[in-house]
């Protein structure tokens, strides 16, 4: 799921230290800042692609971070097509990106 090389890293010594929540991303627990968007949390955790283009199959990732590009679509708590950049992570949230979506596709879930 997450690569070893996240494209983004935290600034040093953010004060006060933001409180975190634990979110399930493709079945694995990930700690995320409560103040940053889910998309930011995924990027910081090293997720490089969140879905595949339903047209050409290429990997897609967050692009604008402000809700106008609709690239950062993930499943959240079973609901598809959620814009991760507009969602605040909550404790226990279940997020599915392309990695677990590929598996559930055969069960008739969406793209």
């Amino acid at each position: 799921m997450a690569s070893n090389h996240p494209l983004f890293k935290p600034l040093p010594a953010v004060q006060p230290v933001p409180s975190t929540v634990t979110v399930q991303v493709d079945g694995a627990p990930v700690r995320m800042s409560r103040q940053a968007s889910l998309a930011a949390g995924l990027l910081a955790a090293g997720v490089t692609a969140v879905r595949r283009s339903p047209v050409g199959g290429g990997a897609r990732a967050p692009y604008c971070m402000m809700g106008v590009c609709f690239e950062c679509l993930v499943h959240v708590d079973g609901v598809p097509n959620q814009q991760a950049c507009l969602i605040t992570p909550q404790e226990g949230m279940h997020v599915q990106t392309l990695h677990s979506l590929a598996a559930s596709e055969s069960e008739g879930a969406h793209v």
């Binding site: 339903p54 598809p80 596709e105 008739g108 969406h110 793209v111």
Partner: peptide, 12 residues
Amino acid sequence: LMLMVTQRVAPF
């Protein structure tokens, strides 16, 4: 008259 279209869904 109105119509609406959904996001993509696996064929059903």
